[in-house]
Amino acid sequence: MASLPLTVAGAKRLNEELARLKSVERPAVIEAIAEARAQGDLSENAEYEAARERQAFIEGRIKELEGTISNAQVIDPTTLDAEGRIVFGATVKLEDLESGEVVQYQIVGDLEADIKQNLISISSPVARGLIGKSEGDVVVIRVPSGDREFEIHEVLYI
C-alpha cells in the first residue's frame, strides 16, 4: 500500500477516532452482546443481531484506521519551506475573479477532505490546479460548472 499523505491535524483526528473505538465503542458493544445473550434464544433476538452487526462495523473500522495510520505520511504544514508555492498542507486564499468571492482552502489528504471545513483533497480539480502556483498567480480551474479564474491572494503554511 502506498503511503497516504495526512496533515498533523488529520492524523490526530484519526488517532482520536481509533482510541474512542477501542476504549468506548468496543467495550460498549461487547456489553450489549452479553446482555442480549442473557435474554436466551439467540435465533430470534434482534438486539443480539444488531449488537453483532455493530461489533462487525466497529472491528472493521478499527482495522481500517490502523491500516491508514500505519501507512500515513504525516506532513506538518508549519515546517514546510516551499518558498511561497502551493504544496500539500498549504492554506490558500483565492479570489474568484468572476464573482469577487474570496475563499480559503487547505489542501489535505483524501481521507481528511471536508468541504464544509474548507479542507480540499489533494486529488480534487481545484487542488491539482493550484499545486506549484504562487501568490499573485491567476489560475484557470475546470469545475463542474465550467472553467473558473482564480487569483491567489495568499499562501500560508499553518
Results as ranks from 00 to 15, higher is better:
Leu65Arg: 10
Ser70Met: 11
Val92Gly: 04
Ala82Tyr: 03
Ile131Glu: 09
Val140His: 02
Arg13Cys: 01
Leu65Thr: 11
Ile75Gly: 07
Ala82Val: 13
Leu4Ile: 15
Glu59Met: 14
Asn45Gly: 10
Ala2Lys: 14
Gln73Trp: 07
Glu59Asp: 15
Val108Ile: 12
Pro27Phe: 09
His153Thr: 00
Glu31Met: 13
Ile115Gln: 11
Gln106Phe: 00
Glu59Val: 13
Ser3Val: 01
Gly89Gln: 03
Arg142Trp: 02
Met1Pro: 09
Ala11Leu: 08
Ile107Phe: 00
Lys22Val: 08
Leu18Met: 10
Ala127His: 07
Asn71Tyr: 03
Tyr48Cys: 03
Ala11Asp: 10
Arg54Cys: 01
Ser70Ala: 15
Gln117Thr: 04
Gly10Thr: 12
Gly146Thr: 08
Ala56Thr: 08
Glu154Asp: 07
Ala51Asp: 02
Leu4Arg: 09
Val108Arg: 03
Val29Gln: 05
Arg85Gln: 13
Gln117Met: 07
Val24Tyr: 11
Val108Gln: 04
Asp96Glu: 11
Glu17Ser: 11
Leu65Tyr: 10
Glu98Leu: 13
Gly146Ala: 11
Ala32Tyr: 01
Glu154Pro: 00
Leu65Met: 11
Ile158Gln: 13
Leu42Glu: 15
Leu130Val: 02
Val103Ala: 12
Asp81Trp: 05
Val108Ser: 03
Val139Asp: 04
His153Cys: 00
Val92Phe: 01
Val126Gln: 07
Glu16Thr: 11
Pro5Leu: 14
Val8Gly: 03
Asp81Glu: 15
Ala28Cys: 03
Ala9Tyr: 05
Asn15Tyr: 04
Glu83Gln: 13
Ser70Phe: 07
Thr91Gln: 11
Gln39Met: 12
Phe88Trp: 05
Arg54Ala: 11
Ser23Met: 07
Glu151Val: 13
Val138Leu: 03
Glu98Lys: 15
Leu4Glu: 12
Val87Leu: 04
Arg142Ile: 08
Asn118Ile: 01
Ile131Asn: 06
Val29Pro: 01
Leu14Glu: 07
Lys22Ser: 07
Ala38Asn: 12
Leu6Tyr: 04
Thr91Ser: 13
Gly40Cys: 06
Arg13Met: 10
Ser134Met: 05
Ile62Ser: 06
Val138Glu: 12
Leu94His: 05
Glu35Ile: 11
Val102Pro: 00
Ile120Ala: 02
Val138Ile: 14
Gly146Tyr: 07
Gln104Gly: 06
Asp114His: 14
Leu21Asp: 09
Glu47Phe: 09
Leu14Val: 04
Arg148Phe: 05
Ala32Thr: 01
Gln106Ser: 03
Ala36Ser: 14
Glu31Ser: 15
Gly146Pro: 03
Ala72Glu: 06
Glu47Ser: 14
Leu111Asn: 07
Ile75Arg: 06
Ile75Ala: 10
Gly129Met: 13
Leu6His: 05
Ala11Arg: 04
Arg128Trp: 01
